[in-house]
Design a protein around this nucleic acid. Structure first.
Lengths: 222, 222
DNA sequence: TCCCAACTGACCAAACTGGTCAATAATTTT
DNA sequence: AAAATTATTGACCAGTTTGGTCAGTTGGGA
């Protein structure tokens, strides 16, 4: 998954950022990554463009050659990574399979991988969701609803409800399943963060997640 | 629950903050609340003492009359609120009842109330847990382990395992129950945050939480 | 050679930083 | 009432950082 590298929707450019899109690809990445990292850590208002250019290894002038000001940079980043997630992330979910466990496991694993491989992208999107700066807040809201609809909307769409025992409240059951998988992956990642053994022994997590899934199937399925 | 107001453990004062403890109680609260809010929002390094004194309605000099510098203020806050939580929050949990549902429901509701009534206290503790500033990080670690032990240690201690069906893996079942209640309360609070109807219709949340608990009991208990 | 874009970094005024301290106000002690 | 003590102020400090500019250098294509 070459996340952050594939999307090239020219529409997202507008006219103002067109210069940025023509430059060397690797330099683009350096700038994008430096910027989301800084914005994620400090929020819009407290993020420093000086830090961004230092981290990206470019001059101050160049950044403002590509983006006319801080606000335009921020909004470009937001739109860009919303597109990235929509295409590279949620596009991966197999909607053929109508089994809720298959879908949720896929989502959970994708999310874990995202956090692990591209923590800055994840943190940036989360912090953008919480962003309180009046300067940019209003512009974000619509795109956010859009993203949530694309994602959670499709995951729970057209689930096979016939598999559940007949006395089970399906909505609540799905919630329990979701929260269990979410809680499990949070725990797994926190455990790894503390232990710092960053050798990705995904294998254990995968199989342990399956134990929970099997248990939940016994509980909820016919 | 007069959280933040009751603890008066003189030991936490040391000699350095003794002045602060003698002043008017309401002013103490103003300063404490202003400080944790700022630290929670921006982290140790980026928090501004100017903002704190402005919010607290005191002069710059006075803050540094009570605390010799920013670091001492931060560490005092941390210790103070660890004590507050240990005494006012975890002290509320009834350890007589050995039923996991009773305990976890109590913890979940307590946590919800904390977030609702004292969001800054909660955010401050969370941000302190993530704090990365080398200046204060090391001092926090021990107290944190202490707090986690006091809290999660006792909640899961001496649970009545006889109530579970005999083919159930109890550790995993408890995890599922915990994650469900956590997920539920997160969802409830997010729903409320978006709707902004801050009339606390706790009643709905309480009864809806009970529905989940009853469902889980059917699944896991004999 | 010229030309134009990419690119640099010194520079700007303004804001802000944690912290100090002499002066004033309020309270207590004599 | 005077004196002594304590609480409180906010102007001030030197230093850093802010978002943004712009005159000028570089490098590649014609």
């Amino acid at each position: 998954m070459k996340l952050t590298e594939l999307v090239n929707d020219k529409k997202e450019a507008g006219l103002l950022t067109s210069k940025f899109l023509t430059i060397d690809h690797e330099k683009q990445q350096r700038i994008l990554n430096a910027a989301i990292k800084e914005f994620a850590q400090k929020g819009y208002a407290n993020a420093s463009t000086n830090e961004i250019v230092k981290e990206a290894g470019i001059s101050k002038g160049l950044l403002f050659h590509y983006f006319k000001n801080k606000k335009e940079l921020y909004l470009y980043l937001y739109n860009h990574f919303v597109n990235v997630l929509k295409n590279e992330f949620f596009g991966e979910i197999n909607l053929q399979d109508r089994d809720i466990f298959v879908r949720l496991k896929a989502v959970t694993m994708l999310k874990s991988q995202l956090i692990k491989k591209h923590p800055d992208v994840f943190n940036f999107m989360m912090s953008a969701y919480q962003e309180s700066s009046v300067e940019v807040k209003s512009e974000l809201d619509q795109r956010h609803r859009e993203l949530l609809q694309t994602s959670y909307g499709t995951v729970f769409d057209n689930i096979d409800t016939e598999k559940f025992k007949k006395d089970i409240d399906i909505t609540r059951a799905i919630n329990i399943i979701s929260w269990t998988l979410e809680g499990f992956s949070n725990q797994a990642m926190e455990r790894e963060r503390l232990a710092k053994h960053s050798q990705a022994d995904f294998t254990y997590d995968f199989s342990e997640a399956d134990v929970y899934i099997e248990q939940l199937k016994v509980l909820f399925y016919k």
